[in-house]
């Protein structure tokens, strides 16, 4: 249990203080929000920081709000808060759906959405929902703020575009202007808590546009322009969903690891894609607005 490494701890009261700390310590500092990934990493001694910067004093980051036609999810928003947010249910149902499948309630009460995309482990649950929603990652440093489309955010397994002296303040999800419905599917070894061996997110718009993202079947989660284009050209119906499913083999390249073989991952991604598409179609029909 004991962590045999020593490091410092600061809990800044303002974002400016936090950014000054990051500026000073750079890559030797680690940001601590929910800490559910970080504590495990430190126990294993992967990356040993010199300083933990606990951002839980920055109340402004603990908000889910709609601002400038976008849903803002602050860096301290936990998956539990997402599960209890009517705003998320209304505007990004698929994120709400995915959040319910993250670990267990005891972890969801602590783990954050932003932490999830900062740890950027390939099997993360929030990536697919954010990708299909064209979400934007907002970072801050003493040098200013940046906006990075989530599509560009992931660089490799556990690697993102965040700068050494930067922190993520929030992610924003542009509010779709028309009726839409999404669905998230996660490949798990059983119904209980599990990391995704693969996941699929789809978002269907009233005008026929469809966005599709695949996770855990490559080093980074990704959208599928191939399938999106196919639906754009042909429209979404049961036959086209089946045809699009057959394209998946040429789009993703899953690997075999301790959780599943590449064959099963491939098969399941196709099954989940079809199920997600049908769920989204059904949900769209029921949408009122």
């Amino acid at each position: 249990m004991a962590i045999p490494f020593e490091f410092g701890y600061e809990k800044p009261a303002t974002i400016a203080d936090a950014l000054h700390l990051l500026d000073k310590w750079g890559r030797n500092a680690r940001i601590l929000a929910g800490g559910t990934d970080l504590a495990n990493e430190l126990k294993q001694g992967f990356r040993v920081p010199e300083l933990l910067v606990d951002i839980k004093g920055l109340d402004a980051l603990e908000k889910i709000k709609v601002l400038d036609d976008a849903l803002h999810i602050g860096a301290l928003v936990t998956f539990d808060m997402v599960r209890n947010s009517q705003l998320v249910r209304d505007h990004a149902y698929i994120l709400y759906e995915a959040a319910g499948l993250v670990a267990s309630s005891g972890v969801r009460n602590r783990a954050t959405v932003v932490g999830n995309i900062c740890s950027a482990v390939a099997c993360m649950d929030s990536a697919a929902p954010l990708l299909v929603h064209d979400a934007v990652v907002h970072t801050a440093s003493l040098e200013g703020e940046r906006e990075v489309p989530v599509q560009d955010w992931f660089v490799d397994n556990r690697k993102t575009l965040v700068g050494e002296k930067e922190m993520v303040s929030h992610v924003s999800i542009p509010l779709p202007k028309i009726k839409h419905a999404g669905a998230y599917q996660k490949m798990m070894r059983y119904t209980g808590e599990d990391l995704a061996a693969a996941n699929v997110g789809v978002l269907l718009m009233e005008d026929g546009a469809c966005r599709v993202a695949f996770g855990s079947v490559g080093p980074i989660p990704r959208r599928s322009p191939e399938i999106e284009l196919f639906f754009e050209k042909n429209g979404v119906n049961a036959r086209h969903i089946d045809q699009a499913k057959d394209m998946i083999g040429g789009i993703i390249s899953p690997i075999t690891d301790v959780r599943a073989t590449k064959e099963y991952r491939m098969h399941m991604t196709k099954v989940m894609f079809v199920r997600a598409m049908h769920a989204a179609v059904e949900r769209l029909k029921k949408q009122k607005i």
Partner: peptide
């Protein structure tokens, strides 16, 4: 599991210093 501010959490994933 312990209850932190009304929520069940994993005390093995929390640094003690955080609960000040």
């Amino acid at each position: 599991t312990v209850i932190l501010n009304g929520k069940a959490v994993r005390s093995c994933l929390i640094f003690a210093i955080e609960i000040n």
